[in-house]
Design a protein around this nucleic acid. Structure first.
Lengths: 148, 148
DNA sequence: TCAATATAGTACGATATAGACCTATATTGA
DNA sequence: TCAATATAGGTCTATATCGTACTATATTGA
């Protein structure tokens, strides 16, 4: 008879929630006042995945409501770290680009966080890290599909 | 020469952030209007780990600021799902207990969420799940220690 | 073709989250 | 012992988050 209550999955969500809190705190302690994790995450996303994305694409990538992303992008634009241009094909939409300041800011922040992250890494086995990432990606895809 | 940029760990944090969003949405879609994931999480924590905890202990368990926990507990108390009693040993503190309504509510919500979670489970290998939980607990402990 | 519907983004409002500061009680150590 | 310090919890405030409703543009299909 299979377990009727999937405790391990609840434990997993619980652990994920706690690590989310801790990593948010870790990052934000290394960002200037007023900059939050979502700001850094979006800059990083643009630098890694590519600029010229639309706000809705970015919102989907982070699985946050588009309103939240509008707000985050507003903060970045007010600080001059991104700029938006009209969408060449879709009049309803627009595209998001890093400014030079934004690129610089992101690189600096990344350096700072990376440096302080280094001592943490040895605690984790590379193989297990791979397995973990794989499982989390599966879980993410499944949850994504489960969302009617 | 080792990788100077711990991409996999950043990827891990990123995946964790996204799953956090998705699981929050999954749970909240199955809770009555106005009830949020933190409310359910605290009820569940009390039921599983034990009642009679102080607010500060609960805040530490979830790694959220005590103010946030005060707010969450306030919501639960206003709905009659928990009650607080003075701390027997510490006049500054108090203890948190489930009410009968709270126990009932938590059991019902758990049933609903568990039922809808069932189809998701086969996507995950039990062994990998164990490895993942272990690694995340290590990471959590490390981050916890890194926090000066 | 063009009416019906879908989608991108925004404005507004409600509420969660969390920082700074305050009060009361506990703990510590000279 | 008791002054100095630490801790639990709350208040006040700022802001992040996100739901609802709206406008403008795109897409669809009869």
């Amino acid at each position: 008879m299979p377990d009727r209550r999937p405790d391990p999955v609840f434990d997993l969500f619980n652990e994920i929630g706690i690590i989310n809190q801790l990593s948010r705190a870790f990052f934000e302690a290394r960002l200037p006042k007023g900059m939050l994790l979502p700001h850094f995450s979006v800059l990083n996303h643009l630098a890694r995945v590519g600029e010229g994305r639309t706000p809705i694409e970015i919102a989907r990538a982070f699985q946050v409501p588009k309103n939240s992303m509008t707000h985050t992008l507003g903060g970045l634009e007010a600080r001059g770290l991104i700029e938006t241009r009209p969408h060449p094909k879709d009049g309803r939409s627009k595209t998001v680009w890093l400014t030079d300041d934004g690129r610089r800011f992101r690189a600096d922040a990344m350096d700072r966080v990376t440096r302080d992250m280094m001592p943490i890494l040895p605690a984790m086995d590379a193989g297990e890290l791979g397995t973990t990432l794989e499982l989390l990606r599966t879980l993410r895809a499944t949850l994504d599909r489960a969302r009617d």
